[in-house]
Design a protein around this nucleic acid. Structure first.
Lengths: 215, 215
DNA sequence: CACGCTTATGATTCTCAGTATCAAATGTTA
DNA sequence: TAACATTTGATACTGAGAATCATAAGCGTG
């Protein structure tokens, strides 16, 4: 009754409707990002995006609450990642150890969220992102939700947890920004990696000595 | 030649033009905040603000780059405050000691930026601010500039300084937010003060143990 | 397969933020 | 007072996003 068993294992009822929704969602997102990369975020109107995706403007806004989310929805997936890493950490591991491992792993995987990725498309995407003030502004909203989620996942008093979450995410943000800065300056991700890993370890050591409860 | 010596000691040429500019600036800001407090940020159009300030809409935008700045321009003054506190600290004091002293002082002064102020107008202003997503979003932009400025004022490598600045400002932000939360919940600023000071000291101790270079 | 039921879409219209243009007004300087 | 520079307002425009309502499409039941 509950399991249709038809296609993938992820979500609930996978009817035709849901399928089309997903397709439309990605069609809009793809059309939008292609246009934005080509001509810049502000030079493309949502009407053009809607036309390219072959839908109407109201429909576009039913899928994405704001123009900025056409770009940023990818970050929504990572919104509670830090919180999940802490919540799902194997027994015996501290929150900071789990987060550090995750970040270093992201570095070696050249995960775009670590900034350490010099694939032309990723670079172009980051330039689009950091080069558009309204996108950066909205990105902070995502980070705020991350912070709240991480604070919830950390034990200790609410204030203590929130202070820790804020510092941890601030550090991760700066580390990723630095990696992106170097990639943007022309260095190759592979070459940066050792520095990036060293700096990340240093920063997490620092966090640990400031936040012994979570180390 | 440089000093007109006519009125105040701050800026350069104080002609009639500059004077009127300042008057207009404050007339717009006052009209805007009064209307926003009365009816909410989103329920008031910039056209109404312009009408209340007896200027045209284009003129309004010559004074304020965006509607949000009608509320947030007050924070622009504090934008490089942390950086200044560090740069101007008396010899022998560490950056963190100077910032801690400044924050504690703000607490006893019930400085609105510490969140510890229960004057009805201040409370209403904070409710307006934190209750309006677009204002919060734009507030982060100010904090980003604060972070950059503070990083510049701190010694050490650029990355090290930026990491420290990010953590310091994250902590101050959370401390202020917590104070505001309690004030908003109905507690009196005077009653909160001891807790606020204790938590601030605890947090700065923590920062110091994580960032010994700046302690 | 046909029937209602629910949900997604599109066409249209509207509000409002922010920009551009240009002429009129006002402060400044010689 | 005359020439100059700057500020302002009237007007019109672009683009984001919400609202309305009718149509279409997927979905469950006979």
């Amino acid at each position: 009754m509950r399991m249709t068993g038809e296609t993938n294992a992820a979500a609930g009822p996978v009817g035709l409707r849901q399928l089309k929704k997903q397709r439309t969602y990605e069609a809009i997102s793809d059309a939008a990002i292609a246009l934005f990369l080509e001509r810049g975020f502000e030079k493309v109107s949502v009407a053009e995006v809607a036309a390219a995706a072959e839908i109407s403007k109201p429909t576009l806004f039913r899928y994405f609450p704001a123009k900025e989310d056409l770009v940023l929805h990818r970050f929504a997936d990572h919104e509670d990642e830090a919180a999940r890493v802490v919540a799902d950490r194997p027994g015996g591991h501290s929150p900071l150890a789990a987060l550090r491992a995750r970040f270093l792993e992201g570095l070696t995987r050249h995960d775009p969220v670590t900034g350490l990725n010099d694939a032309p498309e990723v670079l172009a995407f980051h330039q689009l992102l950091y080069g558009t003030p309204s996108l950066v502004a909205r990105l902070y909203a995502y980070q705020d939700r991350s912070e709240r989620a991480l604070a919830d996942a950390l034990d200790g008093g609410p204030l203590e947890a929130r202070l820790a979450a804020a510092q941890i995410l601030a550090v991760q943000r700066v580390l990723a920004l630095e990696n992106w800065r170097r990639v943007d300056a022309g260095e190759r991700a592979r070459d940066i990696h050792p520095d990036a890993a060293r700096e990340a370890n240093r920063a997490f050591d620092q966090l640990g000595s400031g936040l012994p409860r979570y180390a």
